[in-house]
Nucleic acid binder design. Structure first.
Lengths: 149, 149
DNA sequence: CCTCCTTGGTTGCAACATGCTACCTTGCCT
DNA sequence: AGGCAAGGTAGCATGTTGCAACCAAGGAGG
């Protein structure tokens, strides 16, 4: 994505989110961060991405406040990358993408990684979009109100 | 995203979703589709994307089963693009991105488009990730189980 | 019937970003 | 000091993006 102009000052929160994340690699980096990856090498092995691309993405994510670069826990010289609060707030995005993928891109019984509750080991409940009063809403039950302009 | 090899046959549903959507434009196309856009020109005006890119993305989304190309409702000669069931299932993804953007990229009171319940005009409830038994779970409460390999 | 305008694209080309490989730097181990 | 691994940076080929120009099918107007 090159054309930031139209997205940056867009009034749509979806566009700003998309612009802030940057590209798909970044989202997979965030996914790995949720899965416990912290180090450059871990991300690189997991993603198979070129090192310069990974370095650029990590830098962008740190600049954007999604990741923070902290000293290594083990006292080593390297930096580690951990999710900030803002980055942790992407959890529903990752879960939503994961559930969509699970539902539409895997044959029944096909092997896949699973995100489960640590406590009981069971899969998570599908995300539900709800109105302010808790009623479940479908896409058709919602409407986008554009600002005054 | 060029390297499909590592993503296509990846066991991670997030990666497959990301790969299926294709790029950020595609996601904004889907967002506009949820907002009621159906025609080529509507998407183009809303996104400001080059026509060849839009044409390519629409084709890819149709090929991927996210959109369907149907005859115009008004009897016109052109085609219209509507979400399939699979495309509608992206609703939580869009809502999650929107809520993340709302929470982190807008000054309080800054003008923005809002997704509201059609019935009462109020904003939606923030998405909550829940365990199988309904308990809310934070990222740290979950763990990814990789397949046997 | 002929022309103009709108809609919905496709094609060519220049510029940019991606990805691969090789190289550099720093700290650790011996 | 020498070797090794981690964590990057630099150069270059290639693919994708984006712009602009062009094409084609209707519909409106005369």
């Amino acid at each position: 994505m090159v054309r930031r102009t139209r997205l940056d000052d867009n009034e749509c929160p979806v566009a700003r989110s998309v612009d802030a994340i940057g590209d798909w690699w970044s989202l997979l980096i965030v996914r790995d961060a949720f899965d416990g990856s912290r180090r450059f090498g871990e991300f690189q092995r997991s993603l198979g991405v070129a090192k310069n691309i990974l370095a650029a993405r990590l830098r962008a994510l740190v600049d954007g406040g999604v990741l923070a670069s902290v000293p290594a826990r083990d006292g080593g010289a390297h930096r580690e990358y951990v999710l900030t609060e803002k980055g942790e707030a992407l959890f529903p995005v990752i879960v939503a993408l994961r559930q969509w993928g699970e539902g539409h891109f895997f044959a029944p019984g096909e092997e896949r990684s699973r995100l489960v509750d640590r406590r009981d080991g069971r899969p998570l409940r599908p995300l539900e979009v709800r109105a302010g009063d808790g009623r479940p809403v479908a896409p058709a039950d919602t409407v986008v109100r554009k600002p005054a302009g």
